[in-house]
């Protein structure tokens, strides 16, 4: 028992892979969501706040 944990690379890789995957997946989801919203907006006829015509 010298306080050194041996063979910990698999845990290190697991932590980095999980973090990277979650962050990349959320980034893609967020960007796609905004793009879809902007595309729907561009396709609809323009309605301006406070105008009736």
């Amino acid at each position: 028992m010298n306080g050194i944990v041996t063979g910990g690379w698999n845990f290190v890789l697991a932590a980095y892979i999980v973090t990277g995957t979650v962050l990349v997946a959320y980034s893609i989801h967020t960007m796609r969501e905004l793009r879809q919203k902007l595309e729907i907006r561009a396709a609809l006829p323009r309605v301006t706040k406070g105008t009736s015509s």
Partner: peptide, 15 residues
């Protein structure tokens, strides 16, 4: 601590 201390470089910034 060994190689596992490298987890701290991602865990602490996340915190």
């Amino acid at each position: 601590m060994g190689q596992v201390q490298r987890i701290m470089y991602i865990h602490v910034p996340t915190a």
